[in-house]
Design a protein around this nucleic acid. Structure first.
Lengths: 134, 134
DNA sequence: AAAATCATAACAGAAGGGGTTACATTCTCT
DNA sequence: AGAGAATGTAACCCCTTCTGTTATGATTTT
């Protein structure tokens, strides 16, 4: 796949941890996603630093949720993943002094900012508890 | 730059061709963008196939606009560039049968589709003539 | 002390894009 | 016809990003 699907996978992970008694090892999660435990730890690092999950070392350790799913929004997860921009389209900055480039970038930039604001606004209104199927 | 800025650069190119008597060689455009003539031809290929520009070979050749800038929208250019998706975020499809994955993807998918529809709608209302500074 | 588990660095491989070279093709001009 | 100017396109390299993997260290439980 050419698109960055980390947000989707991370939400998937967190909800499964919750459904799994709030505890799961990197190994377990990795098998669930068909990937490697190290990849899971890398992805989890941002969420750990932001206080959404805690890592417990040693036997019977693993990941546990530091908050209720109802207290974590999709926006929280998005930000914790360090997503730089939502858009696959950016603005060229080849000639910052060119009036044409400035005009083009002003028009596109406004559209992007508006769309990004709408998406993050909706992200902020969805908690992970809302995503539990049922 | 990590983001795909082809749309922005292509709009820039087309407007400059127009301001340059409607004619410009790949060499000229490449110098303007600080890139290579082959890169320009590659980018132009889609627009040529869609009939927005024409390539004239031989001496005094180059690219010319096949339509007035007022008759080309940003959406036309976006589509001609073959942009697959506007978003840098995608949906994981690791477990199509998993209810959690389906629930997550349904929620995110709706947000993306809505945002994408808004952006393309606005793209469709802006012609390249609108972007000429002045 | 042993085992389980996370933390992290390091490296390999795949994928995508851009830049470049090379060569073929087409067209104009003399 | 021939020279030269331009596009068309394939092929290659390089760079970046992401993922997967291995290896080593640190921490915790038993």
């Amino acid at each position: 796949m050419t698109l960055d699907s980390r947000l989707s996978r991370m939400l998937h992970m967190l909800i499964h941890i919750d459904l799994h008694d709030g505890r799961a090892t990197s190994e377990t999660i990795a098998q669930m996603l068909g990937t490697n435990p190290v990849v899971v730890r890398r992805m989890m690092a941002g969420l750990r630093e932001q206080g959404y999950v805690e890592a417990v070392r040693g036997p019977h350790g693993g990941w546990k949720l530091a908050r209720d799913l109802a207290d974590i929004t999709v926006l929280d997860v998005h930000n914790a993943l360090g997503s730089p921009s939502l858009f696959a389209v950016g603005l060229a900055v080849d000639h910052p002094d060119c009036p044409v480039e400035r005009s083009v970038n002003a028009a596109l930039g406004e559209i992007f900012e508006d769309a990004e604001a709408r998406v993050t606004s909706r992200y902020g209104k969805i908690t992970l508890a809302d995503l539990i199927p049922g």
